[in-house]
Amino acid sequence: MPIFYPTDRPLADFKCNTFAIIARCPQTKRFGAAAASKFPGVGAFSPCVDPEYGVVATQGWMNPALGPRGIELLRQGLTANKVLDDLLMEDPGRDLRQVAVIDRFGHCAAFTGSENDDVKGHVIGDQFCLSGNLLANEDVLPAMERAFERSADLELVERLLAALKAGSDAGGDRRGKQASVLKVAATPGFPYVDFRVDDHPEPILELERIYYSNRSVLIEQYYDWVDTVMKGIPLEKKG
């Protein structure tokens, strides 16, 4: 594999400054992630969510290959720390990246490269991790943390949305907003919550609208759908 060393002048348009949360639900053991950015189609690049092994989110001067590679390492049974370590070892541009990993045990590891723009940083909590760079202020990540922790009685997907909204309300990405992504995985091969807003003036509100207006179709019948697909039988309409 060729090695591309970083240069002093990365392509400015590909600076995926983002604030994101990755998490594992302690009750359902599901993995999920949400992110928002002034970067079109952020969800196409990150995060990568595996229903059984964990999540890898990458942002900053993004290297999208880190996501699938991280999932590959998680599937080999590596811990979040080791996965993060290996990803950074292999990536010459590590100081430009911001990477967060959560493993099958819910343990998190995160790295914020020194070359990311301020305000930047990450917060590791109990089975969740927040990360952000080029944030409007120092309050964005703590606001996300509070929102996530205070919504412990909700489902993971709603907690992720709450955190994302709180981050946006606290200032979010300093450059503005354009795109968002919300993912929760449940069964290998069967997307559960997988919504993206690629270009919108209010990407988080739009994401929330898409989720709630489609929940009854896509989410509430999810396991019926998985079961019928796997058994080769038609899915009957509810009621």
């Binding site: 060393y5 970083p6 240069t7 002093d8 010459p92 100081d95 020194s114 070359e115």
Partner: peptide, 17 residues
Amino acid sequence: HPAMQWVQRSKKWQRIV
């Protein structure tokens, strides 16, 4: 070497093949 230039700029480690 590009990696050494980056080491000097970022003051962080690099691997040089």
